[in-house]
Design a protein around this nucleic acid. Sequence first.
DNA 1: TATGAATGAGGATTCATTCAT
DNA 2: TATGAATGAATCCTCATTCAT
Lengths: 194, 194, 194, 194
Amino acid sequence: MKKNKPKYKQIIDAAVVVIAENGYHASQVSKIAKKAGVADGTIYLYFKNKEDILVSVFEEKMGQFIEEIEKGISDKQTANDKLLTLIMLHFRQLADNHHLATVTQLELRQSDPQLRLKINKVLKPYLLVIDSIIKEGIEGSSFRDNLNTQLVRQMIFGTLDETVTNWVMKERKYDLVAQAEDVHALLINGLSVS
Amino acid sequence: MKKNKPKYKQIIDAAVVVIAENGYHASQVSKIAKKAGVADGTIYLYFKNKEDILVSVFEEKMGQFIEEIEKGISDKQTANDKLLTLIMLHFRQLADNHHLATVTQLELRQSDPQLRLKINKVLKPYLLVIDSIIKEGIEGSSFRDNLNTQLVRQMIFGTLDETVTNWVMKERKYDLVAQAEDVHALLINGLSVS
Amino acid sequence: MKKNKPKYKQIIDAAVVVIAENGYHASQVSKIAKKAGVADGTIYLYFKNKEDILVSVFEEKMGQFIEEIEKGISDKQTANDKLLTLIMLHFRQLADNHHLATVTQLELRQSDPQLRLKINKVLKPYLLVIDSIIKEGIEGSSFRDNLNTQLVRQMIFGTLDETVTNWVMKERKYDLVAQAEDVHALLINGLSVS
Amino acid sequence: MKKNKPKYKQIIDAAVVVIAENGYHASQVSKIAKKAGVADGTIYLYFKNKEDILVSVFEEKMGQFIEEIEKGISDKQTANDKLLTLIMLHFRQLADNHHLATVTQLELRQSDPQLRLKINKVLKPYLLVIDSIIKEGIEGSSFRDNLNTQLVRQMIFGTLDETVTNWVMKERKYDLVAQAEDVHALLINGLSVS
DNA sequence: TATGAATGAGGATTCATTCAT
DNA sequence: TATGAATGAATCCTCATTCAT
């Protein structure tokens, strides 16, 4: 399995840094190879093409990202707690790895729609985690029972994504994780008074 | 004023269609010129460069987009009604012009961060409209008074944006406008039961 | 006759200044038109094409240049005096009009060989003036009688040209006209001692 | 060292021929690549850009040119002999390689002043060789001791350059090398009788 | 004569990918 | 496995010239 060889990981890690530092368009394969300490041609022993590097970066990093979140919510008892934990871990992980944050929130969006489809596939498990929390909330009667799961998922993910993107675009000048509780309250209670 | 000349509008409209059909990267200037029925060089009498076409597309279309929404909410009495109207018009306008929807939700995101900054500037007035609704809601006591306006704006915009993007990515197979009321209810009431 | 109309001269004079200031390649027809205070299209009522402007500039300016020299040497009695006068006037005229000097010594050399042929045709009368001085010098026994006129002409013109070019390239930091007598002495006496 | 690799020399030689045959402006990089038998992109592994090809052509060829002359004059005893040898070798080398002659006398002059500066730098060693002959001539009392070295150098170089240019422009219809002795005599003795 | 908006041909350069070693 | 020299496709923009007014 190629994914366990050291050079595979070297290249993935080099790619995250190179893309974050140089931006998507200025991240030539040769630059990634240099950062990874391998020859240009070696890249193609581990990845089909440049797009495959990007998708793999996302797969690897999002895999860990989601795993971390799944682990974090597993011992929470209520949907409410799980949602709060998900938000906190979502924010914390990106706050802790700002290279990755830049890549996921800005640089990877520059890829073409075809690549975006693949990226969405990688994102799917995360959306399923969100769905499961929604379902649990409804069944446990902490959430209303007339909720449209798809819409709710879009609200949750859209809100988190927009919040992180704003934070990255404003050059991470404030504490992202500190906003987790407020975001959670907002999603739970909505805007209305009562 | 160049913006009122017919060729300016021809080129803008051609650009929307060409970008929607071919994608951002495959939209050569020559292709846009051909679609617009002008010579390649003519483009440069109206636009500084290729990027300027894209920014201008966004300016023109978002200008109309926002104007439409401002007009629509102007005769609504409550923040609640205004928010619902904003959501409906946001969805309706993109549903009615799916070329534009594709461009704003997918293709334009491929632009580099520098261009994104310009696009964000164009988006600013829209965010201000959202802010004014939030403020009105708080002052009119329909919304809670401890809301963080920035977070609320991110929730509203993030939710709408994610909802439209999903609809575009799923090839517009369902009725976007029909979801407006549910999205509105979700934002107003949140997830919780009471 | 177009050449006597005011706009013809306006365009010629504008061209000299524009080429001297911007260099040959950056001297667009539109820039010359603007400087001359006419529309782009008007240029083509007076000149066949851009090359024709350049050739005409040279014709006009060299015509005056040569005329001035012919006038200056007409009342000199000896070939020696005539040669000295030619050198002085050659240097003086270019020193007095540094725009023209820049154009003739640097910018016009960038033209393609085909254009250079036309320019050489304009230069012909000047070379004939030099030839006539040589002939007079030989017949009057001030110059040796075994001189090859073509070579002598090349030496005289080559020396003057190289001297002016050097002066222009060194940004005209020294007095060109002051070198006339030394150059003359050099051409007359050569390098040898006796 | 790239300059010793075979492709470097292939490209240089191809460039000389392509420029001589097509002229400076019609010498596209792709044409040079084709003539050299390499891909367009390969050019850029050896040269920074198109201008760099031209400067390198001049460097390579002038390097050999000057070396040849320095070698030729090294065993001549007098300044007179050295000057004659320099003239003969100058003429001979360009007569023997008429592609190079066309490039140096006509095509390369079309370059813009910025490039001309670089070319002048390459020419500098040649001018120094001329200067050293002048100095030797003065010190050895074969040349007058009141000579202005700069002017003499300009006379010598200007005369040789103009002579070669004329020969090229007259399509090399006569024997250039045969004129070396006459040119030499002219420079040594000047025009005057005694 | 004069205008100036419109035309459209033309070329240097980058960089993902290959393949002989 | 690993290398890195070589490949070659692909595109934005300028500007001399035209022509309807």
